[in-house]
Design a protein around this nucleic acid. Sequence first.
DNA 1: GTCCGACCGCTTGTATACTAGTATTTCTCG
DNA 2: CGAGAAATACTAGTATACAAGCGGTCGGAC
Lengths: 239, 239
Amino acid sequence: MAEPIPIRGGKPSGDARRPGRAPAGPYLYAALRDQIVRAELAPGERLSETELGERLGVSRTPIREALGRLRDDRLVEVRPQIGTFVARISPAAVSDAQFIREALECTAVRVAAELADVESMAQIEENLRAQERAIERVDIDSWQLLDDTFHRNLCDLSGHPAVWPVNERAKSHLNRLRRLSLRMPDYLSTMVGDHRAIADAVGGHDPDAAEVALREHLRAVLREVPRIREEHPDYFEEP
Amino acid sequence: MAEPIPIRGGKPSGDARRPGRAPAGPYLYAALRDQIVRAELAPGERLSETELGERLGVSRTPIREALGRLRDDRLVEVRPQIGTFVARISPAAVSDAQFIREALECTAVRVAAELADVESMAQIEENLRAQERAIERVDIDSWQLLDDTFHRNLCDLSGHPAVWPVNERAKSHLNRLRRLSLRMPDYLSTMVGDHRAIADAVGGHDPDAAEVALREHLRAVLREVPRIREEHPDYFEEP
DNA sequence: GTCCGACCGCTTGTATACTAGTATTTCTCG
DNA sequence: CGAGAAATACTAGTATACAAGCGGTCGGAC
């Protein structure tokens, strides 16, 4: 697992300190969530607060705060007195997350298509070019960040910045699948092609076309589920 | 404020114990959220973890857990070393919450209208009758619970039970306004009339009519905002 | 050989203590 | 009398200790 996170109040590990000495909870939450999404903490794996604290160089208290949020996100399951377990991927939870994601992002993209101005489209264009550069470098990590930024920018273009945080947490299960999808050949090029189609519809002020393109794009990951399940049956809940 | 909450581990206050001795955090979260929604904890009011713990008969730890979730819901703002403040109602947050609520509930009701069967409609009918009885008794608390159940049942009818918890947390700001709306004469009768129109469209398997009726219904509370703001200007953020 | 009870090791939930930061109040000096 | 500095009181964040519960193991009895 990761080396101890340098944060305020934690036992010194080397002299590395996080700039600004921000509270540890949010940082730990992001770090643990990322490890779960990347399957570095495998579905079904048993965690303990004490052990996580020792590994990350902090006491149980900020670990508990982070795990509390992960429990809210349904990424871990806490069983009192037994332990904390990385949640397995539930087909029902995936279906629910997909429903929420489509409802939020497709509604937002319609409004974005109505409101899009030159400045917003320039920002989206820049993001698309960065995605293409990341693919040329086969830099999957960068591409994934840019992918998220693309979708976030569209949501924010609706004028409702609170949509993205809600969407992001609701789609945690999908993020796990998306991460597992990335190793398919030509997958990223297909994704960027979809992104360009969506951007063209938004820039052309066509809400219907934007929604259709986005909905189709969002469903791509679901088509990967059977293959992912075949490669990683232990990642999934029993049906 | 409320008398101490009987929970596991807390200092005994009388001998009342909650059945099953469940953890305190979720209970405190619900209690504090309810007090914020009811404006019993006024917007802008300064809380401290120590004081809340003393009032509620528990240590700071479960209070912190509850406040962490309330912070996620944007119902409180935590300023380290200064205090925790009940969030004022932000017009932008209200607008965002309304957007999310419409996106989720209107998408869900369309699916519900397609899937509704006799058993589901019977459950919704029973809820509507209970709403009418609550209005006859002028029992606003019961009605509000039934109102939530009505909307929840519609969401659940989409086959995606995860929608409601996401929606419920996202619309916390709207709940505050809904609570403040209830004292209008004839408001509840209008609400139940809307509910019946929605139910009729769902039962009639008419997704378009169900969405239109629900969207109009959901927007009713926004029309109350100017009056609420006039009566309680201190509840709102500066524009 | 099987079953049951006791014990141990681990867990989470909560209480308490410590630390660092912030704001307010009080005191001193010009 | 006002301004600035120092002291004080409060806060949240984190570390640590204690309590209760759960599951597994081992030993004794049948």
